[in-house]
Every structure is written in structure tokens, then in C-alpha cells.
Amino acid sequence: MFSLQGYGPSILEGTYLTLEISFVSLFVAMLLGICGALAKLSGSPVLRAIAKLYTTVIRGIPDLVMMLLVFFGGQVIVNKVGPLFGYNEYIDINPFVAGASTIGFIFGAYMTETFRGAILAVGRGQLEAGYAYGMTGLQVFSRILLPQMVRHAIPGFGNNWLVLIKTTALVSIIGLDDMVRKAAMAAGATRMPFTFYVAVAINYLLITTVSIYLLKYLETRYSVGVRRE
């Protein structure tokens, strides 16, 4: 039962794609998260309202619905807009782009909350001191806020990352060859679905377990300057 019938390399390829889409979505999510957190804490009521709307809507809609909306809905929009620019062939939306941008968009909202908390945990006086030295906003952000907020952001960030990896399984539904879909194909060919889904489950467990240890290391690394309780 535990033989992969020669489909091992194929599953491994899928694992590689799972990791790839995880990292791309994480990158998108972190960008959106930082923007969202800064918007939520900004003085402009318009920016605050947009950020609030963003996090509320994401909390209310399932990931799968969002992904299907982007994948199928995006297809319709792209093909309506295409001819306007003189492009008349049918355009297929790349499932990788649809998957990564949707997952990034969803986790951007969670990251917004995490980063907002982390920014608030850095003392106001520190930022004021930076401005008092004549630093620009960008300098205060990159020299004072960012290095100190990382420590507070890591636990929430780690949790988001672990959930994100598991969410990438959904891309198999929109036809991307991640490890779940590779397993489904192997299962169809060999009639051994249990074996292949267990193999995939073990892969996910390996990825999450390694992530947990790396995150623990990062947490201690960034807390070096702080006394442990």
C-alpha cells in the first residue's frame, strides 16, 4: 500500500509548485498587509475606511468562493477588455496568477491585522525621536519601525503562513498542478487514492513542521535584545 507506483517524482513536482505558489502569495500578502496596516493607522479617514472594508469583506467570504470569482470572473473581464485594445483572440487566465493573487489578497487582510498590532507595539516615543532627528517618514519606517515590529509580528505572521500553506490546496480546484492535483491524477491512474492522499498529507505535515521550527528560531533571533520572562 505504501508504494507510490513510480508517481513519487510527479508528487514531488507538485510539492515544488505548492511551495512556489505559497511563497508568491506570501509576498503579495505581506505587501498588501503592510499597506493595509499603514492605511488602518493613517490619519486619513478614507484610507482607514478602505482598509476596514478590505478586512471585513475578506473575513466574510470563503477562500474558495473568492478564488472561483477571480478565476472565472477575471476570465470574463479580461476577454471583454481585450478587444477594446485590439486584441481579439480568446485569453485564458493563468491559474497560477489567479491562485497566487487570490491567496495573496485574502492573506493580505490577515497580515494587515497582524502588522497593525505589531506597529502599535512599538513605542510612540521611538518614532517621535526618529522624527526629532530629522529623519524622513521612510527612514523612520525602515530604520526604527520595521526592525522593531518584526519581533511582535512573527507569532501572528507564522500562524498566517501555516494557514496559507494549507489554503494553497485550493488551487488544485482551478486546475493548477499542485501536489493535491498530482495526487488526484496518480490516484485515478492507480486506483489507490488513500495512499496518494496520505503521501500528500505527510508532505504538508513536513512543510508545516519545518516552518514551525524555522519560525521558532526567527522568534528567538529577533528577541535577542529583549529579556525573556
Binding site: K166, T167, A169, L170, S172, A184, T195
Partner: peptide, 23 residues
């Protein structure tokens, strides 16, 4: 707890729906 929290719900569902029939 480790298994169910560490793997995607989709994989768990496939494991039950498609996988159990293997035996």
C-alpha cells in the same frame, strides 16, 4: 490534533471520500 491541524481540509476530505474506498 497534529494531523488535522497540519493538513488542508481539502486533503482530509479527499482522504475520506475517495481514499476509504481503496480498502
Amino acid at each position: 490534533v497534529y494531523f488535522f491541524r497540519g493538513t488542508p481540509l481539502l486533503v482530509q476530505m479527499f482522504l475520506v471520500y475517495y481514499g476509504f474506498g481503496q480498502f
